[in-house]
Design a protein around this nucleic acid. Structure first.
Lengths: 134, 134
DNA sequence: AAGTTATGCATGCAATTGCATTCAATTGCG
DNA sequence: CGCAATTGAATGCAATTGCATGCATAACTT
């Protein structure tokens, strides 16, 4: 139980801090980064919307609407897949790449401050290993 | 970074599973449990609204509205504090106690299934200790 | 080939959340 | 004391999320 409560509380606390930093920097929420990052990192820089859903653990309709916003802001393009007409294939635009790149330093600094600097490398690895079991 | 990503993903995954279980059992969200639990466990079973805010890590206005809903459903009472008229003191009703009690087995079973059974006692303690450093 | 089921995405509507601000009670200070 | 600053709580409004459902395409079955 202590592990569970710690997990929930710690995650929420750190997440709030990261979001607050991004906001202070005039940047969009972390979810935007996550999507942009997944798409950019995918082979050929294109990724099905359903894959984004799986990787971010967001609900289907939330991915749909988040992509709406990203598209509206010209960060992502939706294309229909030829092989399977049901799929949306997402492509990141150059504007999207630029935004992702500009978010990274802020994001990374927040993680470093709140997590990296509080754990040794061995501890961080241990934590990652324990979390991977869940 | 692996630790951070693992933290966010694991927390979201487990939380979703817990919420899903509660919903399947026709029960309210976990946040309700957390508030009821904090209030009931507090000395004299009364707790200031501001303390709930601090303990749950919810935003001030979200606590306010969550308490609105708990109050509307007769689970919690809001009383004004004599010593400091700004404070709301929350009291749990017998209906609130009953609900908390009925949620506990579902909640506990979900934690056991998704966390308890996947870690040894030593691992869980280790995890809690690492999280406590953050 | 036609009918059934499954999958991926979108959307109307209700509920919740975030933001900015307001209000009231208390504290601190000249 | 009298007044500015602080603290705890509430709220109007916009944005986001959850839910249920709809729609189109593909896969399976016989």
């Amino acid at each position: 139980m202590a592990a569970w409560v710690g997990l929930v509380r710690t995650e929420r606390t750190l997440l709030d801090k990261v979001e607050a930093r991004l906001k202070r920097g005039g940047l969009p929420p972390l979810a935007w980064y996550q999507v942009l990052n997944e798409v950019e990192a995918a082979p050929d820089s294109r990724l099905r919307q359903a894959d984004v859903q799986e990787r971010t653990r967001l609900a289907q309709y939330n991915v749909c609407r988040l992509v709406d916003r990203l598209q509206r802001d010209g960060l992502i393009e939706r294309r229909q897949c030829r092989l399977d007409g049901r799929n949306n294939v997402l492509c990141i635009t150059s504007k999207g790449r630029a935004l992702r790149r500009s978010m990274w330093p802020i994001y990374a600094a927040a993680i470093e401050q709140h997590l990296g600097s509080r754990l040794t490398r061995a501890e961080a690895e241990q934590l990652a290993a324990l979390l991977a079991k869940l």
